[in-house]
Amino acid sequence: MTVTAREKGLVACRECARVWPADHTHCSVCGNTIRSRDTQSLQKVWAWWIAGVLAYIPANLYPMLKTRTLFQTSEDTIIAGALELASHGSWSVAIIILIASVAIPLGKFFAIAYLALAVRSGATWPPGRQYILYEVVEYIGRWSMIDVFVVAILCSLVQLNVAASITPGIAALTFALSVIFTMLSAQSLDPRLIWDRIETKDTKDPV
């Protein structure tokens, strides 16, 4: 049905969509390095994935923010901070933070792992649905950075002498690293590998 560039003995450039004979390693149009499939894709995916998971652990154990007001100081981890907001009645913000900083990162770890395993050994999901998952992960991953920006804004803004001050905690750094590593992990996955299952007829799409 669908003919791929590889089946025709061609290699496609992922930057400018042009195709070249299989022996080309550079695209003559845009200068990008080209290969039919990134054979090291999964290795890179898992390497960044592990780095991302490792950085995510301290991001949740250590404080993200240290808030000092006139009479009290408090150190909040991501989850504790969100729960405190919720207890003050700011449900919407608490939910945004929990989604951006907990649900999305965890969801991404699972999704990338699932896709990487699916590319290697097949999966029950048809490639079409796997690809949608890949697109969602690619699109949504960057948005986890929102919490780091919120910390940056709060810390630069709330410097009111004795009245109130907010300083960043070490978790802000490890959280940012986790987001960056996970983005790199998702980018390392060559999406064409997802579709190759159709070509090789290893799995059939359920009707």
Binding site: V3, T4, A5, E7, K8, A17, P21, R192, W195
Partner: peptide, 18 residues
């Protein structure tokens, strides 16, 4: 001729469909 031919082809960067 081959070059000209390749000129008119486009491959999907996400799934390699030609």
């Amino acid at each position: 001729v081959a070059q000209l031919d390749l000129d008119t082809l486009i491959a999907c960067p996400k799934c390699d469909a030609l």
